[in-house]
């Protein structure tokens, strides 16, 4: 990075620190914060879409679909989410390989599960064993995103289903009496009104999502926890920048990062809540109206 970093053993103090904090691995560490933000940016809308689908399915009058939606909603209630994280990553991987196996090697005679092994034909390996490392890590990251979206979709379905139920029945009946079809009632009356009921739950969900991002580490993605462990560990004289066990400081840094992130989110979300409450027939909306009238 800097020119005086050429011989790290010769420099000391502040210069040493500057060189140390700008090594290639540290740049990777800083970039992994981007991984976390990318995960949040992709997962949040996808999970919301999953949740919306789940909540709509649960409200369906068509019994199998309703049951499916209710099952999806109930999924996260009794079972720790981390079990789903560990489960879906392997299950999705094996499912994808099984499907490609069926397509590409239809006349493969050996069974796929042989005792303790899961063996598909070489052409069905996803990603292909000869593909570069970046494809492999992108695939892992993709699996992690789908897993997060499934689990958080179930949480979001919970929130949105509750919010849809909370919209006053009279509003929907009024719309029906004007002759709107169920589809119109849903699109024009229910969905616009449900957001204010869903917002506290969704804000909570966003906080939970932020705090769940370190679990990426368990899914085999090189995220901030991975780098904090990697960089913080004791480095002997064989390394360019020897130092004792500094993992405590790295994790302290992560703690501060998460505290700042959740605090900022909290402030932004409370502003949004206030804004959305304007003109709503809720206690918060009434309070805003009175404050304005005074």
């Amino acid at each position: 990075m800097f020119e005086f970093c050429a011989d790290p053993k010769a420099i000391e103090g502040l210069q040493w620190m500057m060189c140390y904090l700008t090594t290639g691995k540290h740049i990777d560490f800083y970039l992994s914060f981007g991984t976390v933000l990318l995960l949040l940016a992709i997962t949040a809308p996808v999970a919301l879409a999953f949740g919306f689908g789940g909540a709509m399915a649960a409200r369906s009058h068509f019994a199998p679909l309703g049951l499916l939606g209710k099952g999806y909603i109930a999924m996260v209630r009794g079972v720790p989410d981390i079990i789903y994280f560990l489960f879906f990553v392997i299950a999705l991987d094996q499912g994808i390989e099984w499907l490609t196996h069926q397509v590409r090697c239809p006349d493969w005679s050996e069974p796929i599960r042989q005792g303790l092994e899961f063996r598909v034909c070489p052409e069905a390996k996803v990603p292909h064993s000869s593909s570069p490392a970046i494809i492999h890590s992108a695939y892992n990251f993709g699996l992690a995103i789908i897993t997060f979206a499934i689990v958080f979709g179930a949480f979001a379905a919970n929130v949105l289903y509750g919010a849809m139920q909370a919209v006053p029945r009279a509003q929907l009946e009024t719309a029906e009496s004007y002759g709107m079809t169920p589809r119109q009632v849903f699109r024009r009356i229910l969905v616009p009104q449900m957001w204010v009921y869903a917002l506290p739950g969704l804000s909570n969900l966003w906080m939970i999502l932020i705090k769940a991002t370190p679990l990426l580490f368990l899914l085999g993605v090189k995220d901030i926890v991975y780098w904090a462990r990697e960089l913080g560990g004791t480095k002997t004289q064989a390394f360019a920048y020897p130092h004792p066990d500094w993992r405590l400081w790295y994790f302290l840094f992560l703690l501060v990062f998460y505290l700042a992130f959740t605090r900022v989110s909290e402030i932004v979300l409370s502003r949004i809540t206030t804004r959305l409450s304007h003109g709503q027939a809720t206690a918060a909306g009434e309070m805003l109206r009175k404050a304005g009238a005074r």
């Binding site: 932020i210 991002t213 370190p214 904090a228 405590l248 998460y258 505290l259 605090r263």
Partner: peptide, 18 residues
């Protein structure tokens, strides 16, 4: 604030290293 604002996962790591 500190315990609710940060992930339990990080708290475990931090406590162990400390």
């Amino acid at each position: 604030f500190v315990f609710r604002g940060s992930p339990l996962f990080i708290q475990f790591f931090l406590a162990y290293e400390a």
